[in-house]
Each structure stands twice: as C-alpha cells, then as structure tokens.
Simulated scan of single mutants.
Amino acid sequence: MRLLWDFDGTLFDTYPAYTDVLYEVLSGSSPKPAILARLKVSFTHAVGHYGLSEEQIKRVFELENELHPAQTPPFPDVEQVVRLAELNVIMTHKPRKEVAAILQHYGWAGYFAEIVAGDDGYPKKPDPASYRYLHDKYRIDLAIGDREIDILPAKAIGMRTCLFQNSAPGADYYLTDYAAFQTTIVRH
C-alpha cells in the first residue's frame, strides 16, 4: 500500500509538547485541554481563538524550535506500519528542517520517498495541490491524518482517507491505534 502521511499528530505525538508551548505563551490563562482542542483543529484556529499577537506567534515558533525531538515521539506501532507499506510520503505544514531533525533523531529518514513540507511553496491544506502532486507522482492508495483538514484535500482528488484518533465524519477508515492498522488497512 502507498501511503500519504500527515506528520504532527499522525506519525508523531507532537500535540502534548505544542500544547505546553502555547500554555506557556498564554501564561497559563487557558486550560491545557482547551488549548489542545483548538490546536487539533489547526494552529490558525488556535491563534484566532486566543487572539495571539505577532509577538506571541513569534514566541510560539521560537519555543517549538527549542523542542528536542525526544519531546515529540512517534506513536506506538506506527513504525511497523511504515515498514510494511510499499511506499510512504509526507505532506506537512511543518518546516522541512524540523521534519528532518525529528526523522533523523528516530532513524526514520529512509522510510519516506518524498516529503512536501510547509516551506516548499504549496498552498496550505485543505487546498489539494500538494496531495495532487504526490498522488500523480506516486499513485497514493490512502491519505492518513489526525484532523479533518488532512483528509479534505485527499477527498477532493478522489483518494481514500483515514483519520487517526479522530471520529469526524467523512473518512473511509478510522483508527485509534496503529496496531489495528497493521491487520486491517495495510492488508487490503
């Protein structure tokens, strides 16, 4: 199976660290579960909800850049899924340098045929341009993400979709963990 992966919250459990960063920038004025819920929609949604200033946004990015890859670990069992796949690509809004640092830290750089990162010039999701590029080049079978915004571009170009730890309507498959993925989707 040829898989298109989102990065944050799909391959790597980054949201706890990002929640801590935003909590710090907000000086603890919002509870962490509320921050996490906003981030799971999108960073732009969280920025708008909390009315972050340009200075606060800059500070968020500074703190995120200071995170060590050990603070953003892969989800359990996802490496086995990546290994079983015929091909893996990543489409993320995260800058390439940050993606590369995390992949290098975990020894995963060789698992991915290509990465389309946030600084590659493609429009942000849900625009399907980056998905169309990857699908045309690699004939992707399934797009996997943790947010509705991750599957909308795939749906727009007729790809099958999977939501990870999210039950929003519209996906073809739903997973709560990757152990189940190995026995259900990859074998189809």
Rank of each mutant, 00 (worst) to 15 (best):
D172T: 09
T176F: 02
K137W: 10
A117R: 04
P73R: 01
L134W: 10
D146E: 13
L87C: 06
Y111E: 02
A154W: 08
A180I: 06
D127N: 15
N88H: 07
Q165H: 12
R147G: 04
D120T: 02
A70G: 07
H135V: 02
I144E: 08
A109Y: 01
R96G: 12
Y111G: 05
M91Q: 09
D177I: 03
Y138T: 11
L84P: 00
E114Y: 08
F181T: 05
D120K: 04
A113V: 11
V89F: 08
F164Q: 02
K97I: 11
A129R: 08
Q165D: 07
Y138G: 09
K124R: 13
Q71Y: 12
H135G: 01
Y174S: 05
I151G: 07
L142Y: 02
R96Y: 14
E148G: 11
L175W: 09
Q104R: 11
R132K: 15
D146V: 09
A109P: 01
D150R: 07
Y111F: 13
V81C: 14
D146A: 14
L134Y: 08
D119K: 13
V82Q: 01
P169K: 15
F75T: 02
K125Y: 07
K125S: 08
Y131G: 04
Y131M: 13
D150K: 03
V82C: 05
P69M: 12
